[in-house]
Amino acid sequence: MNLHPPAHRVDPRAADLSSHDFMRLIEAFGLTGAWRWDFVSGRQVWSSGLYRLLGLREGEPASYERLLDLVHPADRDVLEDAAQIVQAGVLSSHTVRLIRPDGTARTVVSRGEVFFSPAGRPVAATGVLLDVTDRERLAEMHRLEQQRLASLARDAQVFIHTEPSLPLTEYEPDFLALVGLRREEVRADWLSPIVPEERPRWRDELPRLAALGQPFSIAPTLRLAEGGAAPFRMTLVPLRDGTPDPVCWTAVIAPLAAEAPARERPQRQAEPAVRVERAIEGRHLRAARGLLDWTLNDLARESGLSLSTVRRLEEESEGPSSRSRPHVLAALRKAGIVFTLVEGGAVALARAE
């Protein structure tokens, strides 16, 4: 007895997929659609996927003008008009927003091509629209998140940072600017942001707490780029994906002084060190470099910055909020330069003996 049924024979040609079949399979995802415009006959054709993408009923008249009508008014001038395509043969790639008849908005990437006759005259065009709404939303969310983190760091000295494991070594530029260290220095010694006298304590304490795999807080005193030090609270939280071991750690770093309710803190002027920092200008940097008999190259080397960055700081083209500025000030202070705020708000500088 033959237990195996006879093999079903298929004509190999029947398994071939036409370009139409490929398009149908791709458009089944609901994220793309295509159009074609024959300039000679004037006939325009839209694929089923394009009707779905535009939110139109299949069979409605297809026209480039109708497509333009669905583009967000603020983006409409970006796309070529019909005359540019038919007469000049211009059809570029764009990312635009669509407002569908039901009021929903989608972001699409438009790609197109114009075909020419042997004489060089435009005779037809075809195009594809790809829905990238989710991608654009993720990009916008990422941009807003980066703005939020930058505002927290700039206005409140609060830093939120995530790494795969502890101890932390890959801090964001805002935090590195606060402590006046380069990334390479922190990678070489994760304790370098902490004042030297506390490093033995946290060298033992942090690994012990991390090994428990539970949220914990520490309050180390951090060195500051402008000189001095300040206590900060580091709250570290393990993140898991269903496994016992953390997949990463998120740290929230904030000044301890910021934990007191605002109504309990008396209003006062900025600390002297902060006021001195704000008052230092490019001319003071040049004068300090002169006291040390340093060239621009010397200052660039000692601060770990590029020559062009140091030059821009001295010319004040980067502004007082530049992230590179604390590195230059730290290098000058390390070499013995002392900046002092005198009567009238002027900055005096001297070289310590």
Rank of each mutant, 00 (worst) to 15 (best):
D11K: 01
P12S: 01
H20D: 14
I26Y: 07
I26S: 08
L31G: 10
R36M: 11
G42A: 12
R43A: 12
G49F: 05
R52Q: 01
G55S: 07
E58A: 14
G59E: 09
L67R: 00
L68H: 03
H72S: 04
L79P: 03
D81C: 10
Q87M: 14
G89I: 00
L98E: 01
I99P: 02
D102L: 13
R106H: 13
V114N: 01
F116T: 01
G127I: 05
E136Y: 11
E136K: 15
M141G: 12
Q147G: 14
R148G: 04
L152V: 07
R154F: 11
F159P: 02
L166C: 06
L166W: 02
R182Y: 05
R187M: 05
W190V: 07
W190S: 02
V195C: 09
L206N: 05
R208Y: 11
L212E: 05
I218G: 03
A219H: 02
A225K: 00
E226H: 07
L236S: 02
D241P: 14
T243G: 11
C248R: 08
T250M: 13
A251F: 00
L256G: 00
R265D: 01
P266H: 10
P266T: 13
Q269S: 13
A270Q: 10
E281A: 15
R289H: 10
W294A: 08
D298K: 01
L299C: 08
A300L: 09
S303F: 00
L307N: 12
R312K: 14
L313T: 05
S317L: 15
S317N: 00
S322Y: 05
S324L: 14
R325S: 04
E343T: 12
A348V: 05
L349Q: 04
A350V: 07
